[in-house]
């Protein structure tokens, strides 16, 4: 009990480090992120481009320069996958963190204040949960932003397209975290250490920030990780349907839209982006699963 000063996090990290599957998945994920965000340097090194079209080198076969060949517009497929990954992977990260943030605020508010606040927020959560997710996402993705008063220039910009996806996936994705955080908060506010802080006259904000959230962080981390995977899948579906990332930007989903039409002649072009999605999402899910068992309180030495 009074062994050397080991914090909870060190214990957890040790448990995670023993989980070979999770560790392997984590390495794959780190490698994937690293490769995608070094796309510009890799292009220089290989002397290829994943962005500009080159009609003289369409459908090049695989060789030392074009590791995965080139596509229908003569762009290098490998570095194009990396470029698409920048968008897909970063949207996954941002939208997952965004969802968790919104979910944490709503869940903690509902669980802390209870009563009518809780009732209203939870009915709202149920309301969001019963939304047919994909159709509503498509509608949101297709909304004409000029009707909401945004300028034409802004609406057509690549940044608007990118952040629109982040935003809508965030808006529809916070419900799981909200429920988890609410449940955790409901039980935490009954704990005596919270009563002790309240007896001192601590503000609600302080109690939530110092006592409730740090103790609820475990399910939040796990849910955020798993959410990243589903965000990447959602983004790819929206982009595949043509309402997500718009050209000239590219994501793994939008690459599949083009590749679909070339299926009969160049099936490999449809294999790579999908395989990239599968690899990223499966790695994320294994990491999330590993975190879940590493964080399991039943394994905590009390």
């Amino acid at each position: 009990m009074t062994e050397a000063s080991v914090s909870v996090w060190q214990l957890r990290w040790r448990r995670l480090a023993r989980d070979r599957v999770a560790l392997g998945a984590l390495s794959v994920l780190v490698l994937l992120y690293g490769l995608c965000f070094s796309a510009a340097w890799i292009e220089v090194w290989l002397d290829v481009t994943g962005v500009d079209t080159d009609l003289m080198s369409r459908f090049d076969p695989i060789d030392a320069r074009h590791w995965l060949g080139s596509d229908e517009a003569g762009r290098d497929e490998f570095t194009r996958i990396l470029r698409g990954g920048q968008i897909s992977l970063s949207i996954g990260l941002f939208a997952a963190i965004g969802s968790s943030f919104v979910g944490t605020v709503i869940g903690a508010t509902a669980g802390y204040f209870r009563g009518r606040v809780d009732m209203v927020l939870m009915r709202f959560t149920d309301f969001m949960l019963a939304m047919p997710a994909l159709p509503v996402l498509i509608i949101l993705a297709a909304i004409d932003l000029t009707k909401l008063g945004f300028s034409q220039d802004f609406v057509r910009s690549g940044a608007a397209g990118y952040w629109r996806i982040v935003l809508i996936v965030t808006l529809l994705g916070w419900t799981t975290v909200a429920r988890l955080v609410r449940a955790a908060t409901l039980s935490l506010v009954e704990r005596e250490f919270v009563l002790a802080a309240r007896a001192q006259g601590a503000s609600s904000l302080r109690i939530l920030w110092v006592h409730v959230l740090p103790n609820a962080v475990t399910p939040i981390i796990v849910a955020t990780t798993l959410r990243m995977g589903s965000v990447i899948l959602t983004e790819s579906a929206l982009s595949f349907l043509g309402v997500g990332i718009q050209p000239p930007s590219t994501s793994w989903g939008s690459m599949l839209t083009n590749a679909q039409e070339l299926m009969a002649s160049n099936p490999l072009l449809a294999v790579y982006p999908g395989a990239a999605i599968l690899m990223a999402v499966i790695a994320i899910n294994f990491v999330g699963d590993g975190l879940q068992s590493a964080f399991d309180p039943r394994a905590d030495p009390h």
Binding site: V8, F193, L195, V210, N215
Partner: peptide, 10 residues
């Protein structure tokens, strides 16, 4: 409860 009254994270 001396186990419940101290925040385990602090």
């Amino acid at each position: 409860d001396p186990f419940g009254s101290l925040d385990p994270r602090l």
